[in-house]
Design a protein around this nucleic acid. Structure first.
Lengths: 210, 210, 210, 210
DNA sequence: CATGAATGAGTGTTCATTCAT
DNA sequence: CATGAATGAACACTCATTCAT
């Protein structure tokens, strides 16, 4: 009758029980495909391979589960690196191509779409996602640019603005048609061309002449 | 006995019965605030000031009502004009500032957000909206640019790409934080500054030197 | 200002305005096909070629309209006649074949089915229909049989029972499979055979020997 | 306070969870009283003592629940037995009285009525019910008759037809008035008289003389 | 009288959530 | 802890009925 529970370490309060992982993975899949409202807890349970009840052991409600997914998404955001040994054009091109390939791959825009969709009703979620992922990406670039400015290789007044400009230019003709389902994912060649054009424009304006 | 009534037909088949307008207005409000799934027909009826049943007299189902809203949104899309008597920088600045003021005003991004959110499940709606509104806007600019190229005032290889680049650059640091609720609507001053920077960069690259 | 209404005879209180007829005809069609609950007033209005509102000018509600249909159905019930100049077998055969052909033709069982379906919830309707149509048909036969008994041509104790027996025997293997959609409407040949067998059995039992 | 519960599995996948039984019982009651269209899922839930949602755990929709009821009704169809040691008249009388007592008892015609009512819109349901219940009953009798024919005790050409004739004759003056609510359930005495008359007529025609 | 626009109670169905086991 | 049966509030949608014209 006495039950000695030696298994204290596998309690769900642990941040990463395998069950919790399963749920997060299943939930991401469903939420990203169907959006917050379109996703049902039943579907999520099925995708995660757990019972519906278990969902509520780890997350208080649908919203909390969704927030956890988005939160995680912000932590897994890809870090872009810049190689100081290579020239600016190469670094910008590498960054631009990697970024566009990432967001314009099938499913690549799901998180952006899903979070943007809910941002009005869950402003905190929207803001956190923007700050960590989009602004994070841009900040990465901002920091790189600032370094080049300090090294006298670029002439930029507002590096943050410049980073945002470059970030957006790389998407020209690519991201919006893709995410609105007006066009399929762009080919690597098309991406190269667009990013090359962005790099050219960027350096034409911010490059140090001579 | 004589009754002068030029609007004798109160039939719902009329394209613009006041009831139909009421419904469209109420529905737009609710759909744009809550998204397709988040909006309920009851809420829409309340917002429109009609009964739930009446909704179904004018629209076969929720989807049809939503599509009608989006359709209308594409028709009310603002047309941007370019004045051939003014110089390119002025025209670009005017376009950029008007566009950003439009989409970054409170509620200005709702349609984009709402349609983008549903684009995966309703690809036709997404595509039509993109084609008519976003591409429509860009095409407007493309045409203008092409004219200037032919007039020898600009040196652009791919005018469509250039238009998209400008269109996106104008949004730098503004639209994404706004739509993700990370920042409030930008001030006219901030818009001016960002658009001015975009114009500068655009002309630095595509302007004809001399 | 004075309006002399000479058209007093076409008011809806008249038992047979053409509008009333139209409605009854449309309603019969729809009720008989879909049953009381399955039929909608909208469908009936469409079938009758009048507006929904008009339905309520002539009938207080759906139930009253249904009752009027059934009532009418009882009045249009076919009268079967027996020819005293022909022999009993011929008369019974004629009656049997006519009756089965009537109820086993496509749509012929609709009234029976529809009224039977509602009889528990509208007992008056069920009883009246039974009394007037089914019992009416049997009474017709009963009267004929009674005449033959009095004429010494048949030996029947309970003529009503005998009439009902004959009425049912004629349906053997035909009506139930037909109305349950287990078999299509029987061929005239099959009907002949079954009725002939019923006549034979009937006379074998009730016929006067010698 | 002590609860003995040997049925520890409360899973709905079990073919006969008590909940499933409860639902079937409640649904039968409501469907048989009000018909398919007249019955509402809410009413059924109330009658079954479960929530509306639970209905959908066990049955995919209203139609499936209805079909399950009818299916079950066909399986519970009474089997009639004939005792070879007793004479034909006794066997026929036993069968006839049992059958009429069954279908003319209060509620005894509900299934027939309900299924017949829906047969046009759900032909499969109608056909299956007819085949299994009505034809099943008649086949039972057919088989018995065929045996007697082979034993030289009856002279019947078409045993199926003869069985159907007997089956129907037993109902004479009883079933139709009962199901149309024109008369209450018949007394055993009345049933006896009618069945006796049917047996007499049947043997007068098909009996072997001598 | 005839209309059909409008209603709102009601329908079948789904789903986030709870809880006994 | 994990389950999944059970719930009930909410949903999209239908329809008998009303009423201004």
């Amino acid at each position: 009758m006495i039950e000695v529970d030696q298994n204290t370490t596998h309690a769900p309060q642990d941040e990463d029980t395998s069950k919790r992982r399963q749920i997060l993975d299943g939930a991401r899949e469903v939420f990203m495909e169907l959006g917050f409202d379109g996703a049902s807890m039943g579907e999520i349970a099925r995708a995660a391979g757990v019972s519906k009840g278990t969902l509520y052991v780890y997350f208080t409600d649908k919203t909390a589960l969704f927030e956890a997914i988005v939160e995680e998404e912000t932590r897994t955001a890809v870090l872009f690196s810049f190689d100081p040994d290579r020239d600016i054009a190469t670094n910008l091109t590498g960054f631009g191509e990697a970024y566009i390939a990432l967001v314009c791959r099938p499913g690549g825009g799901s998180a952006i779409r899903t979070v943007m969709a809910i941002a009005e009703r869950m402003p905190d979620v929207g803001r956190r996602y923007y700050d960590r992922v989009l602004e994070g990406t841009i900040n990465c670039l901002t920091t790189y640019l600032r370094g080049r400015v300090e090294a006298g290789q670029l002439a930029i007044d507002d590096c943050q603005l410049a980073a945002s400009q470059f970030h957006l230019m790389c998407q020209a003709t690519l991201f919006l048609p893709f995410i609105f389902q007006a066009e399929p994912a762009p080919s690597p060649e098309r991406i190269s061309k667009v990013v090359a054009s962005a790099v050219r424009m960027f350096l034409a304006n911010y490059g140090v002449k001579g």
